[in-house]
């Protein structure tokens, strides 16, 4: 459930609501940022900035335009991508790997208890190769449908059905 009451309280600048929102969304946004940045320390800094933006701009979130999750996701992805474009970052990370989120998960052994670790590991093993790319671009990198279609040289409609299938299989595994 989207915590609508909590979001409204956040927009009223209630610090308690802010803390609950942080607990609810921070790990997920941290993952998105880390996947783009691949540096734990910088990712921590960006996560802080992202939540400072969420607090300061909370009233800009409009439920009729989309989910709060998506709104926060956009802030996180944009902040991380902005960072990768900064000179200092480029100098320190000359060859940013073209790795996907999957590579992080393959090496990872410890997960927080918010996550169904066994399910995720199972999912990564069973993942179709095109799902790696589609989920990477659409969800982790924030490509639009059209941009994804162009990047993967695939028709627009195919992107739609494939992203449905890829996320559906994730859901199947996590529910079990």
């Amino acid at each position: 459930m989207q915590p609508d009451g909590l979001i409204a309280e956040l927009q009223n600048k209630n610090p308690k609501a802010f803390e609950r929102i942080y607990e609810r969304y921070s790990e997920s946004l941290f993952g998105v940022i880390y996947n783009i940045i691949r540096d734990q320390h910088i990712a921590e800094e960006i996560l802080q900035d992202v939540f400072i933006k969420i607090w300061n701009n909370a009233e800009a979130y409009n439920p009729s335009k989309g989910r709060f999750f998506t709104w926060a996701l956009n802030i996180a992805r944009n902040s991380a991508i902005d960072k990768t474009r900064s000179k200092a970052f480029k100098n320190s990370k000359k060859n940013l790997t073209a790795d996907f989120f999957v590579d992080i998960l393959e090496d990872k052994s410890s997960f927080s208890n918010r996550v169904d670790a066994i399910g995720i590991k199972k999912y990564i093993k069973a993942l179709k190769p095109y799902c790696e790319q589609i989920i990477e671009l659409l969800y982790f990198k924030g490509y639009t449908q059209a941009e994804t279609a162009e990047e993967l040289d695939t028709p627009l409609g195919t992107i739609k059905t494939r992203s449905r299938n890829c996320i559906q299989s994730l859901r199947d595994i996590l529910v079990k």
């Binding site: 969304y25 997920s28 946004l29 993952g31 996947n35």
Partner: peptide, 14 residues
């Protein structure tokens, strides 16, 4: 499901 997926990518629960 996506929330869980990216949470699992996070280095730790921050």
């Amino acid at each position: 499901s996506l929330d869980q997926l990216s949470s699992s990518v996070a280095p730790y629960n921050p």
